[in-house]
Simulated scan of single mutants.
Amino acid sequence: MRTISVITAVHDGGHHFIGDTYESLREQKLPDDWQWEWCVQEDGTSGIPANSLPSDPRITYRTGMRARIAVTRTHALARSTGDLIRTLDADDVLLPGALERDIETLERVPWCVSACIDLHKDGSTAPGPCDPPGGPVEPARFYHEVLEQRLSVQATTFAAHRPLVMALGGWQALSGAETVALLLAAEAVAPGEFIAEPSVLYRKHPHQTTASHHYWEPTEAATRIDALVQRASALRESGWTWG
């Protein structure tokens, strides 16, 4: 059996929807020779989010020092065993066929992202307003979009070959936008595809990290973007490509 490792960071207080996340993962149908594992890492040492998870041998749960989501995800990556890596937020819901489409796409390319549907607090949904066309992503598309402050995808849908993620150092040590950083780094060294079929319900709620006004403090937010763009630029200028 081959394995796709689903990487989720969680913290005490941010775990109230993780039961729904698990159910959506449990219902995924994979090709016959594939299985999933779920590497859940707590940003902190309370152990409380683990109480919301069932007993399932496919789940591993670890705790660690508070260090924010990028470090937390990279710790989960270290114990993953899959050929492929897929990110999944602790408050999101996978849609039917999401992992199967990732697997099929990653037979052709080193990385991919997919469309998502916003899930609002009142239960209403809305598709992504700026989705690119499905298929191969033109070189530097997302890099230029970030420079223009108009990224057209949710980078939390990122999936890739594990060796590529490891070669890039996992999630860049930032206070946020770490999935965008990994997306731009992967785009700089390898071709990818956009899957037009939505893969997640992206839950919008007042307690999510990006809903905090502290997250969008101008200097903090600008520094994050500057750091991830600098890394992507350095990779592009190096001429290195992932084989």
Rank of each mutant, 00 (worst) to 15 (best):
P96E: 03
V109L: 03
R141W: 11
D92M: 03
P133M: 13
L119K: 00
I103P: 14
G123L: 05
D131K: 02
P110I: 01
V137D: 13
E104N: 14
C112D: 11
P139I: 03
L84A: 05
A140F: 12
S124I: 01
D102W: 06
S80D: 13
D89K: 01
P136H: 12
K121G: 09
R108W: 02
P110L: 01
P96L: 00
P139C: 07
R86V: 04
V109I: 03
P110K: 03
G82C: 11
A126K: 13
G134W: 03
P127R: 02
C130Y: 12
S114Q: 14
P139Y: 05
W111G: 14
V93A: 04
T125A: 07
D83H: 12
A98E: 10
V93T: 08
G128M: 05
S114N: 10
L106W: 00
W111Y: 13
P110R: 05
D131A: 12
R101V: 05
H120K: 12
G97I: 04
T125Y: 00
T81K: 13
W111T: 14
L106R: 01
A115T: 06
R86Q: 15
C130D: 15
K121A: 15
L119Q: 04
P129V: 05
K121C: 09
T125R: 05
C130K: 11
V109Q: 08
L106C: 07
W111D: 14
G135Y: 09
D91L: 00
L84C: 09
D118G: 11
D89L: 00
D83Y: 05
E107L: 10
A90N: 14
L106F: 02
L119A: 05
P129C: 08
L94I: 06
P96K: 04
G135S: 12
E107H: 14
K121L: 05
L99T: 06
R108C: 11
L94W: 10
A90R: 07
G128V: 01
E104M: 11
C130S: 14
P127I: 00
E107P: 13
R141N: 09
P110Q: 07
L94Y: 09
H120I: 02
I85K: 08
R79D: 15
P139D: 12
P110S: 10
G82Q: 10
I103T: 07
G135M: 11
R79K: 07
L84W: 00
V137Q: 10
A78T: 13
P133T: 15
G97C: 06
S80W: 04
L99E: 12
L95F: 00
D83R: 11
A98F: 07
D92V: 01
A140I: 09
S114C: 13
G123P: 00
P133Q: 13
P96R: 04
P129G: 10
A90D: 15
L99Q: 10
E100P: 10
I103Q: 08
D89E: 11
L106P: 15
V113W: 01
R108G: 12
C112L: 07
D89T: 05
H120C: 08
I85L: 10
A115W: 02
C112Y: 08
T105S: 14
T125F: 03
P136K: 11
P132F: 04
E107Y: 10
D83F: 03
G128T: 01
V93I: 06
E104A: 15
L106Q: 04
S124M: 05
S80N: 11
A90C: 15
C112W: 02
G135E: 12
L95S: 04
D102R: 04
D118I: 02
L119T: 00
G123Q: 08
G123D: 11
V109R: 04
P139K: 08
P129M: 04
